[in-house]
């Protein structure tokens, strides 16, 4: 699980061009949206594509995304449970 969290942080920084962040700056429980990393709706779409492409998880219910993308810890739990890749 620690490895997966590390991998997610690296992917998020790279794919969303979060130049000002390093992996060490993102705590497992930090909010990804709003006051945390400050991600927005376009980032949410990027994350949905990432889930599908890299882990074989297709999100069909947008409301589900609100819960899953709460933090790295929540996202890692969800991926570990549902991943097909």
């Amino acid at each position: 699980m620690t490895e997966l969290k590390q991998e997610l942080k690296e992917k998020i920084i790279e794919q969303l061009n979060l130049e000002e962040f390093t992996v060490a700056d993102i705590a497992d429980d930090d909010a990804l949206f709003g006051d945390g990393l400050g991600l927005d709706s376009i980032d949410a779409l990027e994350l949905i594509v990432m889930l599908d492409k890299d882990y074989g998880i297709q999100l069909t219910d947008p409301k589900e995304g609100q819960e899953i993308f709460k933090s790295i810890a929540v996202l890692a739990d969800y991926i570990a449970d549902k991943r097909a890749k």
């Binding site: 376009i42 779409l45 990027e46 594509v49 492409k53």
Partner: peptide, 13 residues
């Protein structure tokens, strides 16, 4: 490379 799938919005926009 993704065979027309998994297209992200940012480069398109």
């Amino acid at each position: 490379s993704n065979e027309e799938a998994f297209l992200t919005p940012t480069p398109f926009i």
